[in-house]
Design a protein around this nucleic acid. Structure first.
Length: 803
RNA sequence: GCGGACGUGGCGGAACUGGCAGACGCGCUGGUCUUAGGAGCCAGUGGGCAACCGUGUGGGUUCGAGUCCCACCGUCCGCACCA
């Protein structure tokens, strides 16, 4: 027997697989399809770390198993290669981002290939390839034409020292991540995508999808749908003040109003406000605060009362004061609220600071001590025609009343905001728009796509925070596609989320020059059957791509309303110290090194065996060898198999085999790869104890192990001349009837304490089992002179006699 | 603060609708083979001399609780004034 040597056999099989194209999705559309998707990586300069292979291996196992089950599998990979780290690296090292990207991709690719994933490399995509971003731009243009892409003045993070716009991720604790100086909010015209138009569908359609529950919950919370009422309050200034509330039932308890500092009515009322200076000062203070500071202020409510204007509570005509406070956000609802301190915690806290009256309108708590916010049990009090009703009934009645009066109506609101879709950066997709002094913003004709990113030598932002593209006067100056007059190109680029919002579609037909993919290909492959990725992408990438897909569905570009049928998530692999792997901590595990020491199959196996796939798990370099040992022992089985004359599965092992096939089959479907591997280890122990393996036993064992350890099972398959490639075989079937054990070991308890064990036929009846138990000497002895009060029998497990 | 998840040997982790807690692996102990063993193989391995005791702590339900209920402690992850 040759020793197990992954160093030679792994590259050999990787080469053979690629040369023969076994993992290329077949053109045969008559076969059932399976589209398994991993989140395509960002090719950073550091290469893969030990965390990357976990999700890839997890789904590679599914992809390989599906092929064995006869599916035509699409398991693709590509590169999400635009973005800031590459650009920063390029600036620092004076290399072009395109060159950095090419080098990083080459490195990532060779690493990924050395792990033996069954990716279809013929469908590799790269978001920075003009042939790819052609269609990213095309989708943007479709959105622009339909009014879903628009420009708007938006506050952005502005570093006062670097003089540049920062992404939220670059603002740490209110200061610039790089230089540590103050970050303020500055208004800038930004491209926006109207994701809010799809808010309702994005939340509703989750019901039909097979996503793990925490993903659904997180998306629902992020979209933040709430139902309430919009109510008009008259004011002594004459203008009406619109508010939104989810608790219209508490209208009788509204004792003051609060407006956001940015509320436009302040300007309208400027002439009547007696303390305008004080108000202006408060507005200035609020404007200076960063988002971080505003949220830090959480507990200490601040505000200023408007002197000279009051609001009128429509239910009782009472005049109530109006305040300005930054706990009310201009971006949500109407930017103003009615304050009900008795039944809202924030209003209660504010009322404490300003000594405002608190009226109880829902009985059940003590509003002098805390706001009573329970909607389920309370009964309305001090509320005129609502008194005596439940909160739910009161909501309906008051909303109806407000409608009759013409001063309010039911209203649905979302927390979801439109998507800021522009970066003042170089390394991104150019926005295909021209600004014409005559015609305004004009879409580039589709015939001019892709609008390629010009190659420049200077990628730093300008002093006023414009994209580096703004410096390219030759490129910027163009003719208006509409009137032909002089015009300027848009110089912002798209955010990194753009290319990843539709990449799975491109995999269906990656070389298509006429469309993002052909209708036939999309019709066959979509939707993605199983998508696994990180929880950190739940509210960004996963939501964004659902939004794009729904839009494409609406314009008839894709055949299904949702892109992903099933979504699961993996846990991170931590460093040996239990901390997140990072360069600075020095706890990064390099997969190349593990492959050199143990081989790719061992690494794959270990990453799956390390623990529950969905949970984080710390790396342990001492434990890996257990997986290598397991493979060595499997390798050694070939000798036993060569010796044996027996055919088929030995009868005494039949149950064990069928149970293992069942367990591995079911566990892998639930991403319980750890227990599937444990079952294979157990089976190997049984085989070893039995003194060897028959060829048939080994054949089945190799098939079950193949998705986990593809190289060595392929090699053994060949060495043992089972015929063909293991990759082309069929997944073993199990027989439920053969899974059942013939005998069962039954625990006999007296008063819940184990007293004896009996080995009985598995299908024995309750009477027979009880009789057998009482006949057992130890039990008979213990029962002597006692009265049995209760007899319990759990089939195949235990008997409990209560005396 | 709100929401969610979790807490099991020396370690990573198993445990179906409540039914022999600790599968599987690491580590450890002893043995064997060996010039050698940080390789392999064999045996053992929750604690305790024992009866017994053991799944974060304290109660409860049940013939029976890691699993269900209540309260508390701790860890991790989201969200963070969304009216």
């Amino acid at each position: 027997m040759t020793p197990y040597d992954p160093k030679t056999l792994e590259p050999k099989w990787q080469r053979r697989w690629e040369e023969s194209g076994v993992f290329h999705a077949k053109q045969d559309r008559s076969l059932p399809k399976y589209f398994a998707l991993i989140e395509f990586p960002y090719p950073s300069g550091y290469g893969l770390h030990a965390g990357h292979p976990r999700p890839y291996t997890g789904l590679d196992i599914i992809a390989r198993k599906r092929r064995l089950q006869g599916y035509n599998v699409l398991f693709p990979i590509g590169w999400d290669a635009f973005g800031l780290p590459t650009e920063n690296f390029a600036i620092k090292n004076h290399v072009h981002p395109a060159d950095v990207t090419a080098a990083n991709i080459a490195h990532f690719k060779s690493q990924a290939q050395s792990l033996g994933f069954s990716f279809d490399w013929s469908r590799e995509v790269n978001t920075t390839d003009p042939a790819y971003y052609h269609w990213t731009q095309w989708i943007f243009l479709q959105m622009f034409r339909r009014g879903l892409a628009y420009k708007k003045d938006m506050p952005v993070n502005w570093c006062t020292s670097c003089k540049c716009v920062l992404a939220n991720e670059e603002v740490v604790n209110g200061v610039c991540e790089r230089c540590g100086s103050e970050v303020i909010q500055k208004n800038k015209s930004q491209w926006m995508l109207k994701i809010t138009e799809y808010a309702q569908r994005l939340t509703d359609d989750l019901d039909e999808l097979d996503f793990i529950e925490r993903v659904k919950t997180q998306q629902r919370n992020w979209i933040g749908r709430s139902t309430g009422a919009q109510v008009t309050f008259q004011t002594t200034a004459g203008d009406d003040l619109e508010i939104y509330t989810t608790r219209p039932d508490t209208l009788f308890g509204a004792t003051y109003m609060v407006m956001s500092p940015e509320h436009p009515l302040i300007e309208a009322w400027a002439g009547r406000l007696e303390n305008l200076e004080e108000i202006r000062a408060y507005q200035r203070e609020a404007a200076k605060k960063s988002d971080f500071e505003r949220t830090e202020m959480n507990k200490n409510k601040t505000g200023v009362r408007l002197l000279g204007v009051q609001a009128v509570n429509p239910v009782n005509g009472e005049k109530i004061p109006i305040f300005l406070s930054d706990y009310v956000l201009i971006s949500y609802g109407t930017g103003a609220i009615m304050a009900v301190p008795g039944h809202d915690e924030r209003d209660w806290a504010f009322a404490q600071v300003y000594g405002l009256p608190i009226i109880e309108v829902v009985a059940g708590g003590d509003v002098t001590k805390a706001a009573f916010t329970d909607c389920a049990t309370g009964v309305m009090v001090h509320s005129g025609f609502l008194t005596g009703l439940s909160v739910e009934d009161a909501k309906k009645k008051i909303t109806g009343w407000l409608s009759e009066q013409g001063i309010g109506h039911e209203k649905v609101n979302f927390k979801l905001r439109d998507w800021v879709f522009a970066r003042q950066r170089y390394w991104g997709e150019p926005v295909p728009i021209v600004h014409c002094p005559q015609c305004g913003m004009v879409a580039l004709p589709e015939s001019e796509l892709p609008l390629t990113l010009p190659r420049v030598d200077q990628y730093e932002q300008t002093d006023d925070g414009e994209s580096p593209l703004a410096l390219l006067t030759d490129w910027v100056s163009t003719a208006c596609p509409q009137c032909g007059g002089p015009a300027k190109r848009e110089t912002d680029t798209m955010p990194q989320w753009a290319g990843s919002s539709w990449y799975f579609l491109r995999y269906c037909d990656p070389h298509n020059g006429q469309a993002l993919a052909s209708p036939e290909a999309l019709d066959y492959w979509m939707p993605v059957d199983w998508y696994n990725g990180g929880m950190e992408h739940t509210t960004l990438h996963l939501l964004y791509s659902r939004f794009w897909h729904k839009f494409l569905y609406d314009i008839g570009a894709v055949p299904c309303p949702e892109p992903y049928q099933k979504r699961t998530s993996h846990g991170m692999i931590l460093g040996e110290d239990g901390e997140k792997m990072s360069k600075s901590r020095g706890n990064v595990v390099d997969p190349d090194e593990i492959i050199r020491m143990y081989g790719a199959d061992t690494l794959r196996l270990y990453e799956m065996f390390i623990g529950d796939f969905e949970k984080t798990a710390p790396w342990n370099s001492a434990s890996i060898k257990g997986c290598r040992r397991f493979l060595e022992r499997v390798w050694a089985l070939q000798e036993a198999a060569a010796r044996t004359q027996e055919k088929g599965i030995r009868p005494e092992l039949e149950g064990e085999f069928h149970r293992t096939i069942r367990k591995v089959s079911l566990d892998t479907e639930n991403l319980k790869h750890n227990t599937a591997i444990a079952a294979l280890m157990s089976l190997l122990n049984v085989i070893t104890e039995s003194g060897g393996a028959t060829r048939e036993e080994l054949r089945i064992f190799l098939l079950l192990l193949n998705p986990f350890a593809p190289h060595m099972t392929e090699e053994l398959w060949e060495l043992l001349s089972f015929g063909g490639r293991i990759t082309d075989q069929r997944w073993p079937a199990y027989d439920e009837a053969k899974c059942a054990a013939q005998t069962a070991e039954i625990l006999v308890q007296i008063n819940g304490k184990g007293r004896a064990k009996l080995t009985l036929p598995a299908e024995i009846s309750q009477e027979e089992a009880l009789a057998a138990a009482k006949a057992e000497p130890k039990i008979a002895e213990a029962l002597a002179g006692k009265t049995i009060r209760k007899e319990l029998y759990v089939k195949g497990r235990l008997i409990n006699l209560v005396v």
